[in-house]
């Protein structure tokens, strides 16, 4: 029965267990993407920030021109803030992907750790 259980553990570890771990990594990535509002930022990259100076303005040419400049300024500010967040978010995501890859690769190695540890112990190597 013990052998059956060990086999069952190893089977689970390399099938459902790994898939579940990959699911967790993927969920975390999703959460980060949601947190940094990636799709929204990309869709509204040049939209006026916080609707400041947004909307149609009616009046003399001078007023219209001023509104246009204001709106343009608002768009530039918006684009700058959005790009900054996109950059920070991008860095976080890259780091997270790397960590995820390490976790998933490490997951595969874990059952071998006792053997590896034993090998290193026998070799006598230490810091």
């Amino acid at each position: 029965m013990v052998m059956l259980l060990v086999t069952s553990l190893l089977t689970w570890w390399y099938t459902d267990g790994w898939r579940a771990r990959a699911g967790i990594v993927s969920h975390r990535l999703d959460a980060t993407i949601d947190y940094f509002s990636f799709d929204l930022l990309l869709k509204t990259l040049f939209a006026p920030f916080r609707q400041i100076s947004a909307g149609n303005v009616d009046g003399p040419l001078e007023v219209k021109l001023r509104a246009l400049v204001d709106k343009l300024f608002s768009r530039v500010i918006g684009a700058f803030i959005r790009m900054t967040i996109l950059f920070i978010g991008g860095v976080v995501i890259v780091v997270q992907v790397l960590v995820g890859v390490v976790i998933l690769a490490g997951w595969v190695v874990v059952p071998l750790l006792p053997l590896i540890g034993f090998g290193l112990f026998v070799s006598g190597w230490a810091f």
Binding site: D34, Y35, F36, S37, L40, L41, T44, A47, P48, F49, R50, Q51, G78, I81, R82, I85
Partner: peptide, 8 residues
């Protein structure tokens, strides 16, 4: 929606 949800 995250931190930038209401930016626009």
């Amino acid at each position: 929606g995250g931190i930038a949800r209401d930016f626009s």
